[in-house]
Computed example of a mutant assay.
Amino acid sequence: MIATIDSERIKLMSTRSPYWCVAIVAVLGLGLAALISSGGPVDELTDNPANVYLLGVNQFGLAVLLIMAVLGITTEYRFGTIRLSFEATPRRWQVLVAKGVVFAIVGLVVTFVICLLGLVIAKLFAGDDFDLTSSDAIRQLWGTPIFIALAMLIGVAVGALIRQTAGAVTIVLVWTLLVETVVIPLLPKVGEPVVPFLPFTNGWRFLTGDTGDFHWNIYGSLVYFALVALVILRAAIAVVNKRDA
């Protein structure tokens, strides 16, 4: 398994798209942190300013990193290199798990660094209006990387299930940017009882610290999001094991 993980790491680092994606996330994360914090206090808009300062990571950066995770496997199907991966590692589940581990670690490390720098930048601009040592800020610092790492697992799993880049990217973007944030919450009668079970909504709830009408607390929301990510990855493994490469 270690050799498979190392192989996936080499694959990832040998292509240009991850570097571009990370650069975009860095620009979004740090740029928005500076822009929002320099615009004046945000305390009137939210009880968790740290989450607002990191919108470039936990919202827009999330979309970019999901695309990166999807590309990590759909491009292998596109160019047929996935067959070589499965021939080298006959237990296909190991390939998917290795990809998930590599992308999750990359997402976690990159996000942690950007969040740390973003919060420091926000403190420099906002000054006394922002407490860098508050419990909410600390939760953003460790919680956002975990949220992104779990999201990367979902990206890899969706890519393995769909296999086509355009379709998989469309699904993850529509899912996160439209379905969970706009469509379902606005559905009459159906939306309200369904919202507490939406995976990304639970992840965002953990980051915002929202104590709304859910069936569990914010840490339960993080656990729920993690379980959904693992279930989707397990489903992808089952499908990949049954069909041709």
Score class of each variant (00 low, 15 high):
Lys99Tyr: 04
Ala236Lys: 11
Tyr224Pro: 13
Gly155Arg: 05
Ala226Trp: 14
Ile67Thr: 06
Glu44Ala: 15
Thr4His: 11
Val95Asn: 15
Tyr19His: 05
Arg9Gly: 03
Asn48Gly: 06
Trp20Val: 14
Tyr224Ser: 07
Leu186Trp: 01
Glu192Ser: 08
Ala137Phe: 11
Val223Thr: 10
Thr15Tyr: 01
Val25Cys: 08
Phe79Gln: 00
Ile114Glu: 11
Val70Cys: 01
Gly107Val: 08
Leu62Ile: 05
Val182Trp: 08
Val42His: 08
Thr74Pro: 00
Ile148Ala: 04
Thr208Ile: 14
Ala104Thr: 12
Asp131Thr: 11
Thr170Phe: 07
Val179Arg: 01
Val228Arg: 12
Val120Phe: 06
Tyr219Arg: 00
Ile121Val: 04
Phe225Glu: 11
Val42Phe: 10
Ile171Pro: 07
Ile146Thr: 05
Asp129Ser: 09
Glu44Tyr: 09
Val22Gln: 01
Ser17Glu: 02
Gly155Glu: 02
Thr81Gln: 10
Val25Met: 05
Asp47Met: 15
Leu45His: 14
Leu187Trp: 05
Ala122Pro: 11
Asp244Cys: 02
Thr181Phe: 07
Lys11Ala: 07
Ala33Gly: 14
Ala98Leu: 13
Ala238Cys: 03
Gly220Tyr: 06
Pro41Asp: 00
Leu32Ile: 15
Trp93Pro: 03
Leu207Asp: 11
Ala236Asn: 13
Arg163Trp: 01
Tyr77Asn: 01
Ser221Cys: 06
Thr201Pro: 12
Asn217Met: 03
Ala226His: 14
Ala160Pro: 10
Leu178Glu: 01
Leu30Thr: 12
Leu117Gly: 04
Leu32Tyr: 10
Lys99Met: 04
Ala34Thr: 12
Val120Lys: 05
Ser37Ile: 02
Gln164Trp: 03
Ile171Gly: 00
Thr211Leu: 15
Ala63His: 02
Trp20Ser: 05
Met13Trp: 09
Ser37His: 08
Val195Trp: 03
Ala245Gly: 08
Pro185Thr: 10
Leu177Glu: 00
Gly167Asn: 11
Thr74Lys: 00
Asp136Met: 04
Arg78Ile: 00
Thr89Glu: 09
Ala245Ser: 04
His215Ile: 15
Pro90Gln: 02
Asp129Asn: 14
Leu28Lys: 04
Thr144Ile: 12
Thr89Arg: 06
Thr181Lys: 12
Ile237Val: 15
Pro49Asn: 12
Arg234Phe: 15
Leu116Ala: 15
Asn58Met: 14
Ser85Tyr: 02
Arg16Ser: 14
Ala34Asp: 12
Val195Pro: 10
Ile10Cys: 14
Val42Gln: 13
Leu62Cys: 02
Gly39Tyr: 01
Val231Glu: 06
Val42Tyr: 05
Ala149Val: 11
Ile73Trp: 01
Asn241Lys: 11
Gly143Thr: 05
Val156Arg: 00
Leu116Lys: 06
Gly220Met: 09
Val158Tyr: 00
Val182Ser: 13
Val240Arg: 05
Ala236Ile: 10
Ala98Gly: 12
Val183Lys: 08
Asp210Lys: 07
Ala88Asp: 07
Asp47Lys: 15
